[in-house]
Design a protein around this nucleic acid. Structure first.
Lengths: 204, 204
DNA sequence: GTCTATATTAGGATAGAC
DNA sequence: GTCTATCCTAATATAGAC
């Protein structure tokens, strides 16, 4: 039995970790509770809606944590946004390695698993993806990139897909390959924007 | 009980369909067999390795079918490869809609689910992704694009990620947004290639 | 708020008749 | 090659004592 944090936090942490490594459906409440050092009584006290409600908490909580991470990675207004984007991918490749190919995205596997079978969870994953898109779009928009939402969405999609191929192959190559590709997406969108030219060729 | 095809094919088809809609872990053998109109006896006769072996057959068979589809979509040597790529994404958005947001990629959900828990299946998904990458890289390479494998991998990753966001949001927008993004990836790679200039500006 | 015990259903897999 | 019956385990969830 661990003693770090309160019981609800331990259950949430254990579920987040296990969902990330095994997926949602393959992870049982029993395993979560054993890992968390908690009991059914506690779990259904905090999550009367059961596994689905716990899953929602996992998705929204880790979604918010990643939103904060996006805010940290994408804040340099002085740098080329395409370069900033590429750097984020390079860092993500390292994260993939550090996690030994567990899912670097805490909601990706869940999102695919529940898209057609659990409406509450599906909505939760959609809202998290939207919040990430909003944050990244705001960053690109601040550089005058016109289709900032479409650009942000594609960059996030590319990262998610690269994680998928990387995990399957147990290789960081797909994520590293995606770094210049992501930069190309951003540069192309910048080139199509009214303020274009400013981000092309010039360092600042 | 259906009578189309033999028993093994019915089991394979049912499993493919259910894995695509519900994922691998959430789909039970019982449900597969009920849907297929088959029994345990038949299932373990054809797949003595059980659910994992059935999953492998699903991954490799539908992986081969998609490889053929890639071959059909990417064969026009007269058109701009970036345009061809964008058109494939537009078509994929329609497929997503036609499937009512079931997974257009038959192995994506499985790939994420098993990446850390089932080595045999993980290898199967990796090999399928590789075969798709090879085919698409050969297409890009035929246009003189130098980093053809990295480009192909990123295009596939972008499509997989766009499917993920699209399924979560029940919207084709992520896939449609990804069409010009994919074209940008291809154009950027072409621009970095020795034979560059040929695919830029010119129609042929 | 936490515990144990249990209800109920489904999970994957096997044996052996036919 | 197909069937039924069954084994054993684990699934989610609940009840009720403490």
């Amino acid at each position: 039995m661990r003693t770090t944090g309160d019981t609800r936090a331990r259950i949430l942490d254990a579920a987040t970790e296990l969902f990330r490594r095994q997926g949602y459906a393959a992870t049982g409440m029993k395993q979560i509770l054993t890992t968390a050092g908690a009991t059914y009584g506690s779990a259904y006290h905090f999550y009367p809606g059961g596994k689905t409600q716990l899953g929602e908490d996992v998705v929204r909580t880790s979604g918010a944590a990643y939103l904060a991470l996006i805010g940290e990675l994408f804040q340099d207004r002085a740098a080329d946004p395409a370069e900033t984007t590429a750097r984020a991918f390079t860092g993500a490749a390292q994260t993939l390695l550090d996690l030994d190919y567990a899912d670097p995205c805490p909601i990706a596997t869940i999102a695919l698993e529940v898209a057609g079978t659990n409406e509450a969870l599906r909505v939760a994953t959609a809202e998290v993806f939207d919040s990430w898109t909003d944050a990244l779009a705001a960053f690109y928009g601040s550089f005058g990139i016109a289709e900032s939402r479409a650009t942000a969405r594609s960059v996030i999609a590319l990262l998610e897909g690269a994680f998928m191929l990387g995990r399957a192959a147990r290789s960081t190559a797909p994520v590293l390959d995606a770094a210049p590709a992501a930069a190309a997406i951003v540069r192309a969108a910048a080139g199509r924007s009214p303020l274009s030219g400013r981000t092309e060729g010039e360092t600042l």
